[in-house]
Amino acid sequence: MGDARDVLNRLNAEVNTARDHAVLRDLYAPDAVLTSPNWDDVRGPDGAIAYLSSWTDAFPDVADEPVAQYEIGNVAINQYITRGTHTRPLVGQSGTTVPPTGNSFELRTCDIIVVADGRIVQHHIYLDVADWFGQLGLMPESPI
């Protein structure tokens, strides 16, 4: 196992269980960039923690079940089945709040991280936001 795999495993352990912001802050480089389909890019450890906390705060039971793991040099990739229940407000990047729906979701998700000097410099998160919002009851019914 290489450095990138170790870092992604530590990140997953923190997001899924301990949720220790000091550890998360140490995992991200000061100039790290996190990209996701539901927020604009965030920068640095504080930006990454804000994004990740938006998930863990709104879905306290959120958990990632690894489906596949890859590592190539300083890049680690995980594919998951991510599950959670919307029991607390979901706060968006702009501060907009979605009240809890009580609905559960199950999504295919993917993390790709790039590591330099033992810290995350790029973190790309992929998920189907329309599917996620649909499962939460936040999308209108399909007319067909």
Rank of each mutant, 00 (worst) to 15 (best):
G2P: 06
G2N: 15
D3T: 13
A4H: 06
A4T: 07
R5C: 11
D6G: 14
V7L: 06
L8D: 07
L8P: 04
R10M: 08
L11S: 08
L11Y: 14
N12Q: 12
N12S: 13
N12G: 14
A13C: 06
E14Q: 15
E14V: 13
E14R: 09
V15T: 12
N16F: 05
N16T: 09
A18G: 10
R19W: 09
D20T: 12
H21Q: 13
V23R: 10
L24N: 10
R25Q: 14
D26N: 14
L27D: 07
D31R: 09
V33Y: 00
L34A: 14
T35E: 10
N38E: 13
W39G: 10
D40F: 04
D40C: 06
D40Q: 14
D41G: 11
D41P: 15
R43I: 04
G44Y: 06
P45R: 05
D46V: 08
G47L: 05
G47S: 10
A48F: 04
I49T: 11
I49C: 10
A50Y: 06
Y51K: 13
L52M: 15
L52D: 14
S53R: 13
S53D: 15
W55Y: 13
D57R: 12
A58Y: 09
P60K: 07
D61Y: 03
D61R: 03
E65Y: 02
E65P: 05
P66A: 06
P66I: 09
A68S: 13
A68I: 06
N74K: 01
N74F: 00
V75T: 13
A76W: 01
A76I: 03
N78E: 11
N78I: 01
Q79H: 12
I81G: 03
R83S: 13
G84L: 03
G84A: 04
G84N: 07
T85H: 00
T85A: 02
T87V: 08
R88S: 14
L90D: 05
L90N: 06
G92T: 01
G92I: 00
G95V: 08
T96R: 12
T96H: 09
T96N: 10
T97I: 13
T97F: 01
V98W: 01
P99Q: 02
T101N: 00
G102P: 07
G102H: 08
N103K: 13
N103P: 07
S104L: 00
F105H: 03
E106Y: 00
L107N: 04
L107H: 02
T109H: 01
D111W: 03
D111A: 02
I113C: 01
I113H: 02
I113N: 00
V114T: 14
V114D: 10
V115Q: 06
A116V: 03
A116M: 02
D117G: 11
G118W: 07
R119L: 01
V121Q: 04
Q122D: 05
Q122S: 02
H123I: 09
H123N: 15
H124V: 07
H124L: 05
H124W: 11
I125E: 07
Y126H: 12
A130L: 13
A130G: 08
D131L: 06
F133A: 12
F133Q: 10
Q135L: 04
Q135I: 03
L136D: 00
L136I: 03
L136V: 02
L136M: 11
G137Q: 09
G137E: 08
G137T: 09
L138K: 05
L138M: 14
P140F: 03
P140H: 07
E141P: 12
S142T: 12
S142K: 12
S142M: 12
P143K: 11
P143E: 08
